[in-house]
Amino acid sequence: MSIMELNGGSVIAMVGKDCVAIAADMRLGNQALGISSKFERIFPVTDRIYLGLPGLATDVATLRERFRFRVNMYTIKEEREIQPETFAHLVSSTLYEHRFGPYFIEPVMAGISKTPSGAVKPFIAATDLIGCLNFAKDFVVAGTASTKLYGVAEGLWEPDLEPEDLFETISQTLLNATDRDAFSGWGCIVHIITKDKVVTRTLKGRMD
């Protein structure tokens, strides 16, 4: 049995029109036994960058704290907030430091970056457990339900969705994909990130 499947859990991020969305299930299990239906695996890094960490639960907590350390140092020294692309590379290099004894996590990031002209650019990225970056233009998925997420997302996603429509699309993708995965589910949480605000909603779904 793979270590990545011990605790279960899945994350997805999608790009919309001047907005991004990131969503995850809330199950924490020990193989087939479900332990918690309130396990958060998406964390804010800055106001406009969110990081999702599916995989081994102990590494979720550890990595979250390590990134907080490194981003705090960055913010204090640079005297500005870290940008999404830079943060993605920080994630990649942190994971590669443990190339031969990795963290069992496949991070997913979503954020809004500002271009020099002041325009808004939606950003998503994901890495594998040793830090290989993937800068997709449509969506990124990770976790035990990743193949299911790929299938539904590929069928439902279209470019330039407005925030409300992006919310519906990512929610349906997550719910239907996790319903087909025994190790994901038990509650879903969705964050919609725009230039001005972040709206967080929990979804009503199957709790089996």
Partner: peptide
């Protein structure tokens, strides 16, 4: 694993 959940949503209107 890619197609069945899509069909659940579009044929059975699950969720």
């Amino acid at each position: 694993s890619l197609v069945q959940p899509f069909l659940d949503n579009q044929i059975y209107f699950k969720n």
